[in-house]
Structure formats: structure tokens, C-alpha cells
Design a protein around this nucleic acid. Sequence first.
DNA 1: CGAGTTAGTTTATCGCTTGAACTATATAAT
DNA 2: ATTATATAGTTCAAGCGATAAACTAACTCG
Lengths: 409, 409
Amino acid sequence: MANTAPAPALPDAGSPGNMGDVRRSNLALVMGRIAQAPSGSHLTRAQIAASTGLTKASVSSIVLDLLETGILREIGLNPQGERGRPGVGLELNPARGVMGMEINVDYIAAGVTDLSGAVVVQEIRERDNRGSESAPVLAALAALAVEVRTAALGKGVEVLGGGLAVPGLVDAGSATVLAAPNLGWLDVELDLDRLLPGLPLGITLFNEANAAALAELARGPAGRHDFLYVSGEVGVGGGLVIRSELFTGPEGHAGEVGHVVVDPAGSRCSCGGTGCLETVAGQDAIFAAAGIAGKGKSRLESMSALVAALAEDQPGALRAVERAGTSLGVAVASTARVLNIGAVVLGGHFAVLERWLRPSLAESLARYAPGKVFPEHITIAAVEEGGALLGAAGSVVRSLVEAPHRLQH
Amino acid sequence: MANTAPAPALPDAGSPGNMGDVRRSNLALVMGRIAQAPSGSHLTRAQIAASTGLTKASVSSIVLDLLETGILREIGLNPQGERGRPGVGLELNPARGVMGMEINVDYIAAGVTDLSGAVVVQEIRERDNRGSESAPVLAALAALAVEVRTAALGKGVEVLGGGLAVPGLVDAGSATVLAAPNLGWLDVELDLDRLLPGLPLGITLFNEANAAALAELARGPAGRHDFLYVSGEVGVGGGLVIRSELFTGPEGHAGEVGHVVVDPAGSRCSCGGTGCLETVAGQDAIFAAAGIAGKGKSRLESMSALVAALAEDQPGALRAVERAGTSLGVAVASTARVLNIGAVVLGGHFAVLERWLRPSLAESLARYAPGKVFPEHITIAAVEEGGALLGAAGSVVRSLVEAPHRLQH
DNA sequence: CGAGTTAGTTTATCGCTTGAACTATATAAT
DNA sequence: ATTATATAGTTCAAGCGATAAACTAACTCG
């Protein structure tokens, strides 16, 4: 129930195809058209038929199914003025939504968006989760989630499914957090169904950086289908989006740019490796190199101190960030060559420090991947706050759009 | 006609699905079962029905279609001894094959395999293609291909399609060699239909390292679905296989391990970058570091000289190869982290030098990607000669197996 | 030789798309 | 107002492909 990994619209070779598959595929096709239409565009059955290539008869039948599930809604208003019988508009039902959740080092969060991605409710609760057992954290999150769900229901939005983002390696299939060093979690299997029971779509587990990358895909500039999202947090995470799909690799945790080797002669990393990007460009590494004491300060305070130091042109801070930019360039260059990726989106502290990071990053990319990653393809994340939460929710919506039959019966 | 990129068995969302798609999907399903059966296993319709989940009636109808295209054959012989009516065996028609072709720096080659991958004819012709215009090279290859085709026909094998491997960046869609530095080709669009006209499946263009990786997938140890193939030639190329699929990235040329940065302070690379793996582990780089003069010697001669030097424990040669191994380790470690890949297959000169390369490579991997790539997952290529050729041919066969309807009518 | 067993084909049925005919509802022309 | 025209959406017969069950075919066993 909880394991709703993004499934292909049509069955993978291995199981026989039947006419039900055709139906499912066409349900997804129609659903996709409606989902990608700009809101207020008054899409009609006839238009869908024309743009998809399906016949009007098929579209009518498919739309009927979708209306019955409740994810679609007819709009009575018909914009007159054109000749001929006016069509009935179709749109995603604004009374249905999904919940995004996040567990992070300093906080837990939950929010509900409707199916078009608009935020209905959102709640962040500070909580020091470092080294905490998973049970109390999940209990706190469950309480928050129930609150947020009733708040959404109060606004007329019913929650169909959920996504949970966690800062660590996850196995979505078994709902297990394999390793979240900053939380101190190792091989923790989460009982997601108990977190928020009775959701028709269940709850899916995501890696935080991957979820943030997905948010960037959904909410960033249109037409960008391939990029590397680099998430600067305590560690350095990454999310790879290739042809508008999250690329997760054979075991589901690709995109770990934080552990690309940027200096073979570098220092030891918490992962056991040597010279990883994280040892130069992670938050702790930058604070240390900039001479900002971390003791007693929260990460947010340290970050403000760093920005202040940079604004005052303090050489130590400038040098630390410059070095991070150069190393980030090396890591991105290597990744770009191996993966044939030409665009980079900076998130987390890399977005905050972009002004000071960019020169050395651009220079480094020009040196190590000339003609591959151009400065204009280095951008900062469009989503500032709650990226992981929004990305997790958005991904659940997307998987629903790609397999709407899951709501039937 | 020529652009037969491996297509999914079922239509990508975007075009309406109809019952024809179901048929195509099930044709591929049945075809797949027959193709993956060990030769001589006497697969029957009933067995296929049982293992695929299709009904006997459907299988019969599908098999009939496949027999009509000529890719399948019934075996009259029925192994008696079991009770009940004996089934008729089905197998890939050994009278059908595909042609693999290769253009490389020092030679051109063409060969025909049958649909089960067995080599029917193979011909390598030495030819210095360095800096040569594409037209004469293609003319020579066309002549060779025609010869090989008639030779195959003489052995009763009809060629259905072909694959051409080239050492450079290619765009399979437009049959264009974007850049092949070692040939001196830049943006050369190939007229593949003229190379060998009248093939029902056309001819597909491949990158050499990618094709070799595919050969490794098809002919290497069974059960290995994810690996990085590193091809050591004049340059260092790579092929990424993920979940038994070639991963080519958004623009079709992922896997370029040769240009991962292994030493930010390293020397300039022919690609314009700095400190790329190729500047340390490419053939020329190793020869130079080992003190083996390239002047006047062919690459083969230089390689023999190097192996001889290594066998004699000459320190210069040992150091050069050790350094290459260390750098290869850095590049593989970075790649492994970004792509979540845990196995490496060494091809080209890396396979030849494996004995001397392995210690430093293993040590390097232990240092830079501890717990990710284990020494026992570093193996040398199972295919020694003509890997690219076999891989290109095999990939064409595979795309046929995945979409057998392309031969209908 | 007949009973039992398994392979493969035939036939009726069902589900889904298609295309054409048809109904519904608007604007534009008379 | 009435009629013509245009467009939206539904209905209905036809076709295709999968399914299940009945049937025929070909072998082994006793």
C-alpha cells in the first residue's frame, strides 16, 4: 500500500498485456493532458481528443471514469462567444490533495497541496532530531500530519496520499531509511501506513535532495528537463533529473555528488572516503575554513555570521567560499561528463552563497568541463523553502497522474 | 529507416494506446522468452503460455505471426519419453542474422551473427583511418560489408539489419558522428542506408565503448545488470549499463569516464579540460610515462613493448601503470557515487594490463569509495576481440526482440 | 487397445478503441 | 423569429485482441 514507486503507465515486459493496459495507458494520457494544462484554460473533451489523437468517444468514456474517481471536476461555466456548442471545462478537482512531509535535522514539517500543486496548509515545527530514536520523531510527525490533514479538510481538501522526505539514503520499496548520518539513523524501517492511515495512495519515502530536485523540476523554469540539483545542507546531497525523470540508479541512490572526489590528496570524509566534495563544500567544512565557530551556535546563526563576514569582505570567509566553489566545479564537471548533463541547480546554502560562489564555480567549470556546462546554465533553486516537502508531494501527484487507475474502486 | 533506436515495447505516453499496442507488447513478450531460452531447450507454445501468463490461444496466435515474419522456426524433432502429446519446439530462426560493423583508428571490420548471437562470418581489414575523410572510409566499409553479407548468404543466413560502432560521440537519431577526435571527424552525417541497402531493420549507429559495454552485457557473466564498462583505447571511453539498459543520458553521450577529473592540478586534455583521466590512463599517456617511444611504432607494437617492460619489472613502466590504476580508481569512485554503480568491467588496454593495474586500482577504490566498489567486482571484459562489433550487432538483435512487429509486412 | 496426459486449435465472450451517425447547443445570416 | 452553420458530446455497430472453455491431436502407460 505504502510502496507506490512511480510506475510506468503500461506494464513492464514480463507480464502479459491486455486491454486493461490500454485503458490504463489512455487514462494516464488524458489525465496528463488535463494536469499539464494551465489552470483556467477550460480544457474540454473535444480539445483533449484533438490533442491526444483519441476519438471523442474514447475521451468521453475515459473522462467519465476519471470523474467517478473524484480527481477530475467539470466546470459549469462555459466561455461563450465562439460559434457552436460550448464545451464543458475539465480540471483537476481542487477538493483533492496530497500531503508532503519532511523530517530534517532541526525540524519536522507537513503540508498539503491540491493536485495542481497549490499549497493548502503548511506547518513547520522545530525539533532537534539529531541522534533521536526514530519512534518519537515519527510520533511527533504523525501528530503534526493529523493536524495538517484536518486543517486541509476544513478547507475542503481531502488527502489522497503522501510523500515523506528524509535526509539520507532510502529504499522506497521497503520504506526503509538505509542511512541518515545526520539523524543517526541506520537501517530504520518506517511503518508509513501508521503515520497517516487510510490513504488510498499510501505514503512514499523520498531522499531529501531527490525530492527537492523534483520540486525544482515541477516549479522551476519550464522546459528544463535535465539538470543536476546540488543540495547544500550539513552534507552535500544531489538529485539527478534526466528527461524529466528522477534518475536513481540501479539501487535507488544515485546523485550523491557530495562524495565525488575533488581532491585525491584531500582530507577524510565522514563516509570513509577521501577528498570528497563534502569535505570542502559542506556547511561544517565552510564554517571551519571561514573561521566561524560552530560551538553553541545553531546552523542558522552560523550561516548568518558567514554571510555577514562575506558582506564585509573578510578574506577568510571569501577564501573558504571560493574554495568550495572551485571544488563544486570539479565535482560538477566530472558528473557532467559521465552523465552528459549540462545544467546545475544550486540549492540549500549553495543558493544562499551563490553571489560569492559563482565566480570560482564558473571558472572551475570552464577549466574542467569546457563547452559542457556554461555559466548561464548554473542557476539557483526556484523553490526556496520546503523544497523537499513540495517535491515529495508533487511526486505523489505525478505518480497519480501517470497511473490514475489506482484510484478506481 | 536507419534510425532504429531501441524503442519501448509499448508506446510512450503521448500517443493513444490501442489494441495494436497490446499485440506488439505481447509479441515482444513471447519473442523475449524464446530469445532468452538457452539454445536446444525445445521451448513449446504451452511452456511459453505457462511462463508468460498468456493463454495458450494467445500464444498460438502470436507465434503464428512471428513464424510468418521468419524470425522464428519450428523444430520438428520432439523429445519423446514424456507422457502426453509432445510439443513443437520453437527457436530463433538460424537463417536470419544481423551485421555488426566497426570503424576504428587502425581498421575497419564487419561480421554477421545469427539471432542467437553466434558469429557466422567476421572480417577485419587493417586500414589507417586517422585523419581520413569519411567518404573513402565508408566506401571501403561498404565494400567489406557487401562481401561479408554475401558470405553469410552463402552459409544460409539472411541479414535483417545492422549496427555500426564508431570511436566517438554519435547521435543515433540523425546517424551523425558528432566528434571522433581520433579519426578527425567532426559532425559527419553518415548515409547509412547506402552502406548496405534494403535491410528491413536499417542500420543503427553506436558509440564504440557503448557497443562494447552492450557486448559485455550480452556475453559476460549472467545476472550482471549494472556496471561501468571502461574502454581503454587511444582515448578512454566508457559505457554505462544500468538495469540491463545502456544509459546514454539526456543527449545520448553519457559514460565519458575518460574525462572525469582525477587531478585538479593535472595537465591539459585534448578535450580542452584539465586533469582528465585520459591524460593519465590513455594509451599515449601511459606509453609516454613509461618511456616507450611512440614514433614509428604502431600502437600494437608499443603495447607489446609495454607488456614486455612490465614483465621485466622495469620501474618506469610499473610506475606508469600504477599511476593509471590509481587515477582510474579515482574516476571510478566518483562515478560510482554519482551513479550508484558497484561493478566495473575493464576493456581494451585496461584488460591487457589488468595484472599490473589491479593493485593500485583496488587500493584507490578502497580509499575513495570504501564499501561501494569491492575488488571482486572489478573484472576484465569477457569479450576480447571485436567487442564493439558484437555489441552493435547484439543491440540490433535485442531491439528486434523488443519490437518484433517491425518485421511484419 | 483404451485410459490418461499433455499440446495445440476452435469458438464464444468480453473489453476497449474506432468511426460514423446522431443529438445538443451555441453563433451568424436572413 | 427562423434557418443555416459550427462545434461538443453521446450512441451504436464494427473490429481487434485477450480469455476461458471446449475440443481435437498425439503421445505414454498399463
